[in-house]
């Protein structure tokens, strides 16, 4: 069986199973622990603030952009870029079973390069900044690679660089599958758990009528 066929068949199935299993596992780990009932009389609305906080934390904290420009600018470009590439590229839409023509190929190319540049800047910041270097482990660098590879192979595939179409498509699919399969078991799981984290923080502060 060719690498491409493996990637499209068993490889994808394996990745999908691991992704679903792992994500359910991580969410269950969190939710199973539960929360005690708060016996203090509420002073504000927990639910509303939980929802608000899920969205308000997309904005930078006052003063922090200036203190950490690379993390902020790089973080925004990387996250938005990734989203644009994943759901804005025509063939991705077809694979995802969504209609629509997608964004122009040139734009996607540009955004991909920009996203990879932002990731490179973030990696450099992680290696240079004493705080980030101290709190980083193999998992942080590994997760970086997991996200960077699909971008890189996708770019090569679209522009037919280094290798012919078939091996590049196989590598691209495989890199996406590896990322999907490992997402729940790495810090990439924040793609799901951030909603819970922000929600809990908002609910806890909201009940007190405090800020979050």
């Amino acid at each position: 069986m060719s690498l491409l066929l493996w990637a499209k068949g068993p490889g994808f199935a394996l990745a999908a199973v691991l992704f679903l299993l792992g994500t359910a596992m991580r969410l269950a780990e969190i939710l199973r622990l539960g929360r005690g009932t708060d016996l203090a009389r509420p002073r504000g609305a927990a639910g509303g603030q939980a929802l608000r906080t899920v969205f308000s934390r997309f904005l930078p904290a006052p003063g922090l952009f200036a203190r950490s420009p690379v993390v902020h600018a790089g973080g925004y470009v990387f996250h938005i870029g990734l989203l644009v590439v994943v759901i804005g590229y025509g063939p991705h839409l077809a694979v995802l079973g969504i209609g629509g023509r997608g964004l122009p190929a040139g734009l996607i190319d540009g955004v991909t390069l920009l996203t990879m540049a932002a990731m490179t800047a973030l990696l450099a910041a992680r290696l240079r900044d004493p705080v980030k270097r101290l709190i980083s482990g193999p998992g942080d660098y590994g997760a970086w690679g997991l996200v960077f590879l699909p971008l890189a192979t996708g770019f090569l595939l679209v522009n037919r660089v280094l290798l012919p179409f078939e091996p590049l498509l196989a590598l691209h699919l495989l890199s996406v599958e590896v990322m999907l399969a490992l997402l729940p078991f790495t810090k990439l799981v924040h793609a799901f758990t951030f909603v819970l984290a922000r929600g809990y923080a908002g609910a806890i502060a909201g009940r007190k009528g405090a800020h979050s």
């Binding site: 969190i30 539960g34 993390v71 973080g75 992680r126 980083s136 810090k187 799981v189 819970l196 809990y200």
Partner: peptide, 15 residues
């Protein structure tokens, strides 16, 4: 508890 687990699961070591 669940909030602690959600917090620790979500950290991306951004610093």
């Amino acid at each position: 508890d669940a909030p602690v687990a959600a917090f620790l699961s979500s950290c991306v070591r951004c610093g």
